[in-house]
């Protein structure tokens, strides 16, 4: 079973990295880029598991709350596939 955790800065948290990328895109001639936010994708291989995808999702949420994301500044989304 494989999982992906998408971690993003919360909307209200300033993302200077995204802003730098937006400005660089403008410099390269890509006009019309209004906003850029940079997040991170964490891919996790859980191997063979007898757990249901609901259980795995709950486990991933716990991992995200405890380590993968910082709830003060970040939101996350979990997706699971076979």
């Amino acid at each position: 079973m494989k999982a992906k955790v998408l971690v993003r800065l919360k909307r209200e948290v300033l993302d200077p990295q995204g802003d730098a990328v937006r400005r660089a895109l403008g410099t390269l001639g890509f006009d019309g880029v209004r906003d850029v936010r940079v997040g991170k994708l964490i891919e996790i291989d859980l191997g063979a598991s007898a757990r249901s995808s609901v259980e795995v999702t709950e486990r991933l949420k716990k991992m995200s709350d405890e380590l993968l994301a910082n709830p003060v500044i970040e939101d996350y989304e979990v997706s699971v596939s076979d």
Partner: peptide, 17 residues
Amino acid sequence: LTEVGMLPGALTRNAHL
């Protein structure tokens, strides 16, 4: 201390990078 929850808030990238 903020990451482990012993102090409130978070420290993130300097605004000017």
